[in-house]
Nucleic acid binder design. Sequence first.
DNA 1: GACTGTGAAACAATTCACAGCG
DNA 2: CGCTGTGAATTGTTTCACAGTC
Lengths: 211, 211
Amino acid sequence: MLKKEKIPKVTIQRMAVYLQMLEELEEEGEEVVSSTRLAELCGVNSSQIRKDLAYFGEFGVRGVGYYVRDLIASIKHFLGIQKVWNCAIVGIGNLGRAILRYKDLSKKGYKIVGAFDCDPFKIGERVGDLEIICTRRLKEKAKDLNIKIGIITTPPNRAQRAANHIVEAGIKAIVNFAPTRIQVPDDVIVDYVDFSTHLIYLSFSLSNLGK
Amino acid sequence: MLKKEKIPKVTIQRMAVYLQMLEELEEEGEEVVSSTRLAELCGVNSSQIRKDLAYFGEFGVRGVGYYVRDLIASIKHFLGIQKVWNCAIVGIGNLGRAILRYKDLSKKGYKIVGAFDCDPFKIGERVGDLEIICTRRLKEKAKDLNIKIGIITTPPNRAQRAANHIVEAGIKAIVNFAPTRIQVPDDVIVDYVDFSTHLIYLSFSLSNLGK
DNA sequence: GACTGTGAAACAATTCACAGCG
DNA sequence: CGCTGTGAATTGTTTCACAGTC
């Protein structure tokens, strides 16, 4: 089904947005949606949606549109999120705790199964139904818990060390919330979530409106 | 100084990354950096950096590189972050509180001056040195507090209402952390921060390694 | 000699426009 | 007739390669 052609990162990101919106439409009881309508809701061009979907196959009905329920199932299938992905958080500060308490993640197919920190005063503390474990034990735990994604929520000066532990543990995907870049081997994928980058974009845009 | 040409969003985002890295270099006592070295640290191509900077002017010295301190100052200047931007948070749950407690924001030129929520049980509660205010009072407060950026950290089903209040208050820039799209007038800029989008990108990449 | 700044070339993503189908 | 799926045209971004200069 999946064509050999490389699928651009932006396409995957938009896919996640379409999925979000389709699930809202499903909740509202909509059964069919056209690319034009979905495009409006997502704030993109309608042929963008058709092109994005075309990377994965043909899901629509000419003259009709897309069946919401079916399209949701198809997207989940080809994005690989019918199964559950186990994640570990490294760095249990305010943000780490907020993510641990974020219940909707499991609905989306992600489960946080390990909470790690290197502060001896935190180790052993319970957060939700997890106990905080020493980061040095990440490697041993990663196997037992089948952890596939590492989430870094340490302060920036600890992020590289956290990344090293994650890489050591054989985990191949990292989301880094710390506002710093990290160095990892080529076979590890890193995605950055940086709040200040977004604020900078907005304040720059505000400063330059109409230019 | 600023050319008329439209500056791509990705350039601004990378600018924020360069700035981050330059500040780390400055702390380490580095006085000069070449585009090649900076590129390595940021994980981009060196001519990318030179092209990005060229949108704003000429900052380097041929045969030498860039003076770290000067470049930081220049970037801050043209991104418009020498001054402080006042922000309001709408939705004081786990994530909202985590952001309120995130002290480094003010170092970066952003200050959260208002905390809003519509839950009567939360109103009046203190978080850090702010008191939670009813979201309906956002409009009146936005003027007094000179709020320029609104941050939505509500549950998804409340995000549109939060956005409406922000727009009503005359604020022209929004960061939306709620995992849903919002509709706003054309003159309001919205930037989305969505954790699950990042997770989906990673899990998709893991599922398709080497394809 | 080393490194920037920048046109030109290569590559990538988006949008258009319409053929094809239900 | 309406809407998808898709080549072709357009627009945008990245990388190359080297002239210019400190």
